[in-house]
Design a protein around this nucleic acid. Structure first.
Lengths: 338, 338
DNA sequence: TAATTCTTTGCAAACGATTTCGAAAAATGT
DNA sequence: ACATTTTTCGAAATCGTTTGCAAAGAATTA
């Protein structure tokens, strides 16, 4: 695959390599006629500058990395979609890395990228991440970094998320208004700030409404079969919850599955509301009440902020901690039992 | 961000740059003692070779590109997951590009990448792609290329797909066995080989079972609201289809939506079966009968084959056209009306 | 006319790693 | 002790692009 390069163009045109380079970059020190000649031949031969040579010389890669826990999740797909709505216009390329909720992988990926392969990263941390050294190290190296959704309060890094606590509060309140007395919170195990925010919203709603039944915080995992076992045990008890607020879409699905197994009717026996970006939630049996996060917007804004950092522009104060509101959609899974 | 480089290591160790380079690549011409010294310091300073310099010199990028029509689709997410199960072990990085079902974008992306940025690509073509020049150009440039799912029969390129025609046949036959007399096929507009294969399976099932009602091939688009209008018009007719075979998950969702609007009961009035990789299909109202494609495996195998090409290994005959079987899961949406 | 700027171009040195080639040093053989 | 091989390492070229600087010619000014 013999690529066309500057030298060949230069020889063909009887020009110096530097002249050709400058002409293609539309430098003011090249005459219009020469520019035209160069551009014509470049177009004809389909010349594309070698990105590795450029990157080496200019010390910029025109590439960003997106690091996420998993990809088989509508939320993250939509985020990527949002990111991709920005990158091509900027002439940037997007590398994808999956941590599979594994701190070690996350650390290794960040280490691997600390050599100029990317100009910046966007990361949603894994739920097993407790040590944040790998992120602070990145920050100290001065390489642009943006956190989204799964952010870290301890870090002074630009982050984009949604109003988790507020929506969790609303969701819990919604269940209470629909008559639930014993609401369970299904959260991700680990110490994710996002889980904590949602849990806090749940707890404060219970407190505000002076619920006497003690809160039930249930920590689930990334593995479906384990979650089903856990939920099975919980819903077999006579005093099982009559309301479920799932902080993660997957957990709502697990709840549906277990309720079906145990012949518990939704919403008559158990009402369910969940954070979820699944479009098909409306088609569920029964239609699932959801809190929809603005995933696409989160991706787009995160990318915009990252590019501001890369271009060394100042951030507006609101861009350092951006909160995009989610939306609660009430459906049959939380309807009154009548 | 002052990166550590070979020169600094060399100076610190009183060695030549070349020696340090060789030591780190475990060359046989470096003594074990020197190697140890070098490795120790490299580890201590967290040295990571500059990938652009390496790529430039070695003319390989350690990067592959995945080009897909969209990402908000469980199938493609799972494919990416499968690809990612291979790439890190190979020390490779994955760039993602979305065509949004737009031929021009697809062509531009391929053009953009023809300069050594990637060592190979995996592509699922857009449904607006009729001209295949951009792909043959790649092929002629000798750069590794693998097609998956949305393949092109006209091209002699390794491709990985599923047994579309066979499964379409089975799905149609399944509807017939459940008593459907008037089955509609919902396919993607355009001339995708995948749609054609599925349509062929549908038609041959009708033919085998000597169905007298003429086939109804309905071409839908990427836009939900247009699809709903089209379906609305069709199902408002008195002689509307009593069975629907959706070649694309999204179209099944559209069908559900329209049936709800028109108060048509599934499966009593209309039975529905669809290609779909949505895990939540079992929770639909009613549970959707699906043909599940082995998306993860398709991604993994496509990546394996691409790496064989990159490493200039010979392909086994079966690897040039690999067909991974899908699975038909019968659920309530095609149950008998009793 | 001479001195000055401005425009346009070329030369050569970077960028950081890899690799070819050759030389010195050490080990081996006769 | 000398010749030969083997081991170990360094100097320099190379990948393709960008860019500081110099130089030549054209245009402008004094």
């Amino acid at each position: 695959m013999d690529q066309v390069n500057l030298k060949q163009l230069a020889k063909e045109l009887n020009l110096a390599v530097s002249t050709v380079s400058r002409a293609l970059r539309d430098s003011h020190e090249i005459s219009p006629q020469t520019k035209e000649r160069v551009r014509e031949l470049a177009m004809k031969l389909g010349f594309q500058p070698n990105p590795h040579a450029s990157s080496l010389r200019q010390n910029k890669s025109k590439t960003i990395a997106v690091i996420i826990p998993e990809i088989e999740n509508n939320f993250f797909s939509q985020v990527i979609n949002g990111i991709e709505s920005v990158t091509p216009n900027k002439g940037y390329h997007v590398l994808i890395y999956l941590t599979h909720e594994d701190y070690n992988k996350e650390r290794d990926i960040l280490q691997l990228l600390r050599n100029g392969r990317v100009d910046g990263i966007m990361i949603s941390v894994s739920n097993t991440t407790t040590n944040l050294d790998h992120i602070t190290a990145w920050q100290q190296a001065g390489i642009p970094l943006v956190l989204f959704d799964r952010t870290c309060d301890e870090l002074d890094v630009p982050n984009i998320m949604t109003n988790d606590a507020e929506m969790a509060f609303k969701a819990t309140e919604h269940l209470l208004k629909r008559g639930c007395k014993n609401i369970a919170f299904l959260g991700m195990a680990g110490n994710l700030s996002i889980s904590n925010r949602r849990k806090a919203g749940y707890l404060s709603a219970l407190e505000k409404h002076k619920v006497t039944t003690p809160p039930q915080v249930i920590e689930l995992t990334a593995k479906d079969y384990i979650n089903r076992e856990t939920l099975h045990a919980i819903f077999q008890q006579p005093q099982h919850p009559d309301g479920v607020f799932a902080a993660i879409e997957k957990f709502a699905v697990n709840t549906y599955e277990v309720c079906k197994e145990l012949d518990l009717r939704i919403p008559q026996d158990v009402k369910v509301v969940s954070f979820s970006n699944l479009q098909a939630a409306a088609l569920f049996d029964p239609a699932l009440s959801t809190i929809i996060q603005p995933a696409y917007d989160i991706g787009r804004e995160a990318a915009n902020i990252l590019f501001k950092l890369i271009e060394k522009k100042m951030l507006m104060p609101y861009e350092k901690k951006m909160i995009l509101p989610s939306q609660l959609i009430e459906r049959a899974s939380t309807a009154t039992g009548s």
